[in-house]
Structures are given as C-alpha cells and as structure tokens.
Design a protein around this nucleic acid. Structure first.
Lengths: 250, 250
DNA sequence: TGATATAAAAGTGTATCCAATAGATGAAGT
DNA sequence: ACTTCATCTATTGGATACACTTTTATATCA
C-alpha cells in the first residue's frame, strides 16, 4: 500500500461531527477503500455477521458504518435485505458527472484566487505519484490518486462543504467506472492533470474552467453509459405481446 | 400546519437508498422540520432517552435517526456526549453560502434548459404560498417555503444528486439564520422570487445566473456573521498577558 | 466561604437477545 | 416437467441489558 498521508480521499469534516470513535473509523475506512479501489465489485453483498466477525465487533457497530456508507451512496441498504456495494444506475452516473462539472468548474475561481505556490507544488507531487503508479501498472493506486487530485485541488478553495461534496462525488465516480468502464481505459487517459496546475498557476480562470469541463467530459466518455435495461416487469408483457402475435409456436 | 405535499423540503433520494422504514422516516421528518423551522434552537441537547420516550421507540431507532441528521450536519454528535442541534460556525456559514452560489448558479443553465411551462407554474404557486405565509405573519412557514423554492427550482435541473446537495445546504442555511440572524429580517426581504421565474421563462441564462448570485449574497447579508469568539483557551492566556502588563490592580 | 475530592446520577457505547422478514428448499398437485 | 404452496433457514430490525463516560451533586478540608 502506498503512502497517502497527504491525500486521504474520503476523510471528510463529517468524521468529527459524527462523533465516531477510532475503531468505527478504522472499519469505515477499510470498507471505504475496499469499495473505492474496487476490491469489492458493485453489487457485492455485505452481510452484517460476516463483517462483524471480520472486524471482531458486534453487528451494532457494523450497522452504524453501513448506514454511513449508505448515506454517502457507496452502498445500497434495502429494508430487510441488508447492504450491498452500490451499483449506480446510468442516470445516476450521468447525474454524478454533471454535478461534478457544476461544482468543480464553479469552484475554479475560488481555487485560482486562493492557490499558493506551496499548495501547487503539493499538487504537482500528487501528480508525480499518480504517474509513478500508472507506470508501475498499479491501476488501483493510480485511480485512487487521480480522484485524490481532484479533491485536493478543490481543497484549495478553502470550502470544507464543497470539498466534502466533491469527495462523495469522486468516490461514487469510482463506482461508476467500476460498473460501466474497464479499469485501464479510465486510468490511462488523464495524465493531463499536470496541465491544469500550470493554467491555475498563471491565474487563468477562464482557461482552467474550460480545461476542467473538457477533462470531466473526457473522463465521462471513458465509461460506456448504455441505456438502462428494461425493467423485468416489462419482460413478461413483451413475451405476452409476442405470444399474441404468434398464437402458436411454429 | 400548512399543506406542503408538493414541496417536501428534506425528502431526498437517500430516503430510499437508506432503506428506512416508515416509522423511522416519520421520526426523522419530525425532527428535521423541528430543527429547520427553528422550533429547536441551535445548541439544544437531544437526549436519546427523551426522544425514545417521545416517539415510543427504543434508543436504537433514535440513534439511527440522529446519525442521519448528523451526517446532514443538522446535529452535532460528540463522543459520549450525545447529540445537539448544530450551531454552524461563522466559517461554516460562509462555506454554506459560498457553496450555494457555486451550485445554484452553476445549475442555472440546466434549469433553464429543462424548465417547462407547467413546472414554472408550480413554482409560481409556491411563491404565492410563500407570500401568503409572509402576509399572514407565519414566518416559520415563510422561511420554510423560501427554502423549498430554491430546492424545487433546482429540481427542474433533473439532477437528483445536485438536488440532494442543495436540500442539505438549504436546511443548514436555516440553522445559520437561526444562529446569526433575526427571523423577520431573513424572511421579509426576498419576496423577489417571482422575478427569477420570469427571467427563466424567457430563457435568459445570463440574467438568471446574475440574479441568483445577487440574491444569495443578499440573503447572506441578512445574517450578521461576526468574527468567531476566541477559543476559551485563549481567554486564560489573554488574562495572563493583561496581568503581566498591569502587575497589580489599581 | 471557596476549592477540591469523592460519590451519586444521568446518559451514551456496545453487545446480546428475540421477533420479523426474505429467500431457499422441498413437497404436492396439475 | 412445471407451477404452487408450505415450511425451513439465514439474515435483518428492533429492544433490552450492561459497561463505561460525563456530568452533577455532595461532602470534606483549607
């Protein structure tokens, strides 16, 4: 596992407001990383007993963690059916990227206004690590750092609330990529992160905004958002219609 | 209580993903409204036992609801100290309004693109109800509907994720207003909601964006965001410093 | 009287227990 | 062989019990 002390994707301000103790936090973090790095595929069931045994705690604690992940939309919890790694629908996926465009582009003026040379240097370092992971073929680390870059860039705006929102959107993006895209396509393309740092460094708000919009559309394009499959209820209806047109087989 | 079936502030998509049953949902909703409408002042303690008795359920259910409210930043939960209605700090308050400007202005193009005549008519109706509440002196209902207007406007964009984010921001805004502003100032001013509907109706993206930015700055200005009081630790230090300058009294 | 230490009370954190539900398995009937 | 119904099992939802922490109240001493 690579060091990532300076870019903890998913550690939001809510951690404090939520009053979680250290143990819950560790469990949460472990699950969070497992989901975001796609060790757990979308749809994977997360039975409370199993997790409780795994972490050596009671189901009570597990349920709290699952509730939190559910609220962040990383897991789906259905009544009396337990939790599973979320499978974003196509429209949800579109919403996520659309929301990212609104928020990340909209925050660019704030980022440019508050960016300092040392902060930008930290970002360059992050991109270096991203490239290293890419070159080393560690696509999990690569995708993680790619997301962390966006979050850290947003953090420059100095707005905790927006940073928290984006953290959620970025982690959900990982789920979208896991569901609808092949991992390598997603991580290869955008080694363009260097560019935006320099655009920001020279204070070009317009340019940075355009860059971000284009970049996010590119990322979205790397996943295949095919139309949603028809609801299973329709299946029966369709078969009945077909049966009516061809009353007897042959 | 006025009818508000067509504008349920705070009913987000997460309600389903969270797998809440009807009873929890009712408890959540009751607390949510109590906080947002300022029946419960910021800082009010929310003991689990009391709530459990109030709603006739066990602490287990109450805890789940409080966790959810904590995640939405409407209550603060501190380890071993229980939950209390959140008291947004000044910097938090600024973040909230800044985030609203980014999101609400950024979504205007989407809103304008998707706004249909019947949808706009529903918004006009909402504004009528807002005015009625204002004229009737029901400032709670008025402030509620004012928030609902922003959420319903956003809903036109057809992006569940953005709508959920804004729902949270709007309800937190109510807390900010409760903490730093006087209720009547906040509700009086913006009867301007009519204007933006017409701007949107004629497809003026630029104008609507400018309107929204100005409007949100106006709202923010109705609350007095004085600088945060120094941490209590500093108090001691300050007194010591003073004592050193004036070794003896008189 | 005021401060500090101690003890009681109140309230939260976690584990465990029981009830309720969904999904699976199997039997019976068509 | 396929459907339908009933039962059985695995898993979740909710309540209770107990341990631990914080806060309040009381008592002791300077």
């Amino acid at each position: 596992m690579g060091k990532r002390a300076s870019a903890e994707l998913g550690t939001t301000r809510a951690d404090e407001a939520l009053g979680g103790n250290g143990r819950d936090e560790a469990i949460y973090r472990n699950l969070f990383v497992a989901i975001v790095e796609n060790h757990l595929a979308p749809g994977t069931k997360l039975p409370e007993d199993t997790l409780a045994e795994t972490y050596g705690v009671s189901r009570t604690s597990i349920r709290k963690v699952l509730q939190r992940l559910a609220h962040e939309r990383l897991v789906d919890v259905r009544l009396n059916r337990g939790a599973a790694v979320a499978q974003p629908s196509v429209s949800e996926a579109r919403d996520i990227f659309s929301a990212r465009r609104v928020i990340e582009c909209g925050a660019i003026p704030l980022v440019v206004a508050k960016a300092t040379p040392p902060a930008l240097e930290a970002l360059r370092d992050l991109v270096r690590r991203e490239h290293a992971a890419q070159d080393g073929g560690d696509w999990r680390e690569s995708i993680y750092l790619s997301g962390a870059f966006h979050v850290e860039l947003m953090r420059l705006a100095g707005n905790e609330t927006l940073t928290d929102f984006l953290t959620q959107l970025v982690s959900r993006s990982s789920l979208v990529i896991a569901t609808y895209g092949s991992p390598q396509t997603a991580s290869c393309r955008h080694s363009e992160h260097d560019d935006v740092i320099e655009i920001i460094a020279r204070g070009d708000v317009e340019g940075a905004t355009r860059w971000m919009d284009r970049h996010l559309r590119d990322v979205e394009r790397t996943v295949v958002l095919v139309e949603e499959e028809p609801a299973p209820a329709d299946l029966k209806k369709i078969l009945e219609e077909v049966a009516q047109r061809r009353p007897k087989l042959r």
